[in-house]
Design a protein around this nucleic acid. Structure first.
Lengths: 227, 227
DNA sequence: AAATTGCAAGAGCAGTGCTCTCGTTGTGGG
DNA sequence: CCCACAACGAGAGCACTGCTCTTGCAATTT
């Protein structure tokens, strides 16, 4: 009974923190304000989070899992064999989550907190999105084994990539494609970072449409879609 | 005489601030510590910067210009007509600057400061890099007018892009190429953000080599280089 | 019923950004 | 030349922050 009360209290703290982050920003989040909102004294919070960064770490973990779950669900709604539709739906789910939760996006994809050593649990949660994208690519190759490599590279990927880790995320995908796969992943989040952080001001007027174009362009590059 | 002393003092403040940002982080930058380093009382700094954010804005402006100048110089060293070499040199210059000044990179490409309205002067400085990349693409099209558009799109770019602004940055480039051009720009910085903010842990082992591969991939996409 | 453990309260410390007032000192116009 | 003005640094102070420590109460365990 006491343990569940504790878990509930932790959820309350995180919820209030999320609300305050949404109102102000992450830098404007203060434990004292959370405690004031909760009608409790600030030192009480330290029973649940030893430090402000610990609270932020918990929020980061939740954010990664929330995003990951959103993308997994979006992907699951599409016919398994339609790789392009899955790719598009997943990418759009990422953007939808990011634009709906810009501050939490900033929390996980923005400037890291000074002591930027990510706990392993965080890395695990962070990979959920990558796993979805990897699975789409992987299964598309299983369906259509005829896709010829446009530019069969030298294959020295082991020198600069963690080939084993990547093979686990997208089994069956030729290592010559890893660069393009990572580039697509990077481009998706690079786009959102640029959009949300204001770098597109003066160039992109309708980020929604532009995003779809970029997603299509990347789909071509990944050969999930014909040019 | 007094005006120059004032300018000098401003430079000292910014230099100390840059050093402290490099040591700790931008969030760990405090005016009081700057003042202590300078052997002056903290309120004295307010004669030069009305607010902490004003100081940061000044540092952001300097960072954009420093990066822009680095890239301009790198591009200038390469034979004008060799578009691919210029592209690669410029991209490498961006990465070199970013890895040499990670905290200043975070300052300009990381999570924006709460009051995230960028002054116009900042936007101007920020576009210096884009102008270099645009010029490379633009002049490459002037040299080789035979490049056929791989996928002549519907041409409705006006609906989601600031076509006029983009045309000013890369004159002579067909608007059907704008998406790919913006994508390349986005990918470069997306890569650096992922690299510097730790998202590549567990996948990319040698970011240096991977970056070159990505730059080549983008060069192909921009048709600055044959596949 | 007694002992232990979890918890909130409150005071307090060192630090922050920022404001205000007060002498001092350099500078330009009459 | 000298004086009024403006710029400047010093210092005190306000409201805020994260975090620590002690105290007393309440719930759980033994």
């Amino acid at each position: 009974m006491r343990a569940s009360a504790r878990r509930a209290q932790i959820e309350v703290i995180k919820d209030v923190a999320r609300r305050l982050i949404a109102e102000k920003s992450v830098s404007g989040l203060s434990l004292r304000e959370i405690s004031r909102e909760m009608g409790v004294v600030s030192s009480a919070l330290y029973r649940y989070f030893a430090t402000r960064d610990d609270l932020l770490t918990a929020l980061i973990l939740d954010a990664y899992n929330d995003l990951g779950q959103s993308v997994e669900r979006a992907d699951a709604k599409v016919a398994r064999e339609d790789a392009y539709a899955r790719w598009r739906a997943s990418a759009r789910a990422i953007r939808r989550w990011a634009t709906n939760n810009p501050h939490e996006y900033a929390l996980i994809y923005g400037t890291p907190i000074p002591g930027y050593t990510a706990p392993t649990a965080t890395i695990d949660a962070a990979s959920r999105v990558a796993r979805v994208l990897g699975a789409i690519l992987s299964e598309s190759r299983r369906v259509d084994t005829s896709v010829a490599l446009a530019r069969p590279a030298a294959g020295g990927e082991r020198r600069f990539l963690d080939v084993d880790g990547l093979a686990a995320i997208m089994p069956g995908v030729a290592s010559e494609e890893y660069v393009r796969a990572l580039l697509a992943w990077t481009a998706i989040f690079g786009f959102l970072t640029f959009e949300l952080f204001g770098q597109y001001v003066g160039t992109v007027k309708n980020a929604n449409m532009m995003f779809d174009r970029v997603v299509d362009e990347l789909a071509v590059s990944l050969r999930l879609r014909a040019a």
